[in-house]
């Protein structure tokens, strides 16, 4: 696969940074490809705008920044407003049903999913990233499900495996409905 650029953005507390790291690790370690991860977040530890940039490629990755993502996951209105305009014409936007003002229909494909509501149903805001990852792999197949699961299990605290897997699968389910 050639270079694929993914941006996951939301607000602090949704686990956006960790979610991005897990995707990158799934590709780099469990699928033996190349991957980079970059993050930015506001000075507030919680509630500020938060962004993960992931690049996955079969070759070495030199320029590590994402200017026009192939895939944008935007979980908040702020994230949609800020980044939807950067998505590549043949790209994908995944956003949340709670985002009220969607951008004017671009050339890219848009999926509106109840990610945040599903997270709340499973456990709360803290598993938003797991629901997101589940939906992301189903829609984009950016990494394999097995690699993703291994990467998740390697990163999460012991004793939280069941709940995280449950959230991941819930995310897959809401995405499968849209395909």
């Amino acid at each position: 696969m050639q270079r694929q650029e993914i941006v996951i953005s939301g607000s602090g507390g949704q686990g956006v940074v960790l979610g991005g790291i897990i995707v990158a690790e799934a590709a780099a370690i469990y699928e033996d490809r190349f991957a980079t991860h970059n993050q930015s977040y506001g000075p507030e530890a919680r509630g500020g705008a938060s962004k993960s940039e992931v690049i996955i490629s079969d070759g070495a990755i030199h320029f590590p920044e994402v200017e026009n993502p192939d895939i944008l996951v935007a979980l908040t209105q702020e994230a949609v407003d800020k980044f939807a305009g950067t998505v590549k014409p043949d790209g994908i936007l995944i956003t949340d049903t709670m985002v009220k003002k969607l951008p004017a229909k671009g050339e890219y494909k848009t999926y509106v999913l109840p990610i945040r509501a599903t997270a709340e149903e499973v456990r709360g805001q803290i598993v938003t990233n797991m629901v997101t990852l589940g939906a992301l792999v189903v829609i984009t197949k950016i990494v394999g499900l097995e690699a993703l699961k291994q990467a998740v299990l390697a990163r999460i605290p012991k004793g939280t495996e069941a709940i995280n897997m449950q959230a991941l699968e819930a995310g897959m389910k809401i995405a499968e409905k849209e395909l």
Binding site: I21, A28, I29, A35, T36, H37, N38
Partner: peptide, 9 residues
């Protein structure tokens, strides 16, 4: 700050 914060394989 780029090389410092970048994660790569």
């Amino acid at each position: 700050a780029i090389v410092g914060h970048l994660r790569e394989k």
